[in-house]
Simulated scan of single mutants.
Amino acid sequence: MSRVAYVNGRFVPHGQAVVHVEDRGYQFADGVYEVWAVFDGRLADYQGHMDRLDRSLDELRIERPMSRGALTSVLRETIRRNRVREGIVYLQVTRGTARRDHAFPNPEVAPSVVVTARSMDPAVAEAKAAKGVAVITTPENRWGRCDIKTVGLLPNALAKQKAREAGAAEAWFVDELGFVTEGASTNAWIVDAEGVLRTRDTQANILRGITRHGLLALAREAGMKVAEGPFTVDQAKAAKEAFFSAASAFVMPVVSIDGAKIGDGRPGPIATRLRELYLENARNTAA
């Protein structure tokens, strides 16, 4: 069937889903977004994504376009109309449409809201996770508020393209001190030489990943040693395991970094176990 999008109060065919040329998301990247994984037609990590959406809107001083209940109904209806059982749903909220001016519109305008959904084949993701993927590193060149999930993603897009051209699945940003911050669209993890599960702390200008947050809790519940703090590229290359996490990737084992083999070059037991734990928990708690 043809895909359907929600745009500012209307469900329309995907090919006709448009916003005004002076929408501030288009002209200034003045907006935020969220992505939920969909399991059996239901929203994974529902509360965490909603809470982060509220925070992002507050940080940019964008008014909520509707109540949480109404927005949830829109998300679920978009999923239903697209017949998505396994996949993702994407939400974007911008400050709205106004005459082009860097300052906020005065008087205020209504925010613009776009929702799309698409199916994803779980078998494809499982095959990729079973084999593992490659990542490359790239210098950190993003703005100082990566904790806000904005649509200003040009550095991320350039990093992702660099990874694709290198035959890799992801690019990890590296700050001026040589520490890995996060991926172009994911959070970065390693299992160090002592068997400690490590990921960068959220004080270091990284996104407060919802999947990341859930994995930390699951890892601690499983008795794994966990540390939130910086690690260098050399430490990552010398690690027993590496992986990245995101709402659409869950837990994806990394088997090489900049061409250097990680561990024995195969997905490790901790990454594999965390993927199993996350998927089980996400399916059981999806709303």
Rank of each mutant, 00 (worst) to 15 (best):
P105K: 04
P105H: 04
P105S: 07
N106M: 11
A110N: 13
V114T: 08
V114Y: 04
T116G: 08
A117Y: 06
A117M: 07
M120K: 14
D121P: 00
A123M: 07
V124P: 10
K128N: 12
A130R: 09
G132W: 00
R142Y: 09
W143A: 09
G144E: 15
I148R: 01
V151Y: 04
G152N: 15
L154W: 15
N156M: 09
A157I: 13
G167S: 13
A168D: 08
E170C: 01
D175R: 04
E176N: 14
E176Y: 15
E176G: 14
G178A: 07
E182M: 02
N187Y: 00
N187D: 04
A188H: 00
W189V: 07
D192G: 01
D192A: 02
E194L: 11
E194K: 08
L197Y: 06
D201W: 11
T202F: 11
Q203L: 07
N205T: 03
I206A: 00
L207D: 04
L207E: 04
R208Y: 13
G209A: 03
G209S: 04
I210A: 09
I210S: 10
H213V: 12
G214D: 10
L215W: 06
A217I: 15
L218E: 02
L218Q: 01
R220T: 11
R220D: 11
E221K: 12
A222N: 01
A222P: 01
M224E: 14
V226E: 02
A227H: 10
G229V: 04
T232F: 08
V233Q: 03
V233A: 05
D234C: 03
A236Y: 00
A239G: 02
E241F: 02
F243L: 09
F244Y: 10
A246I: 01
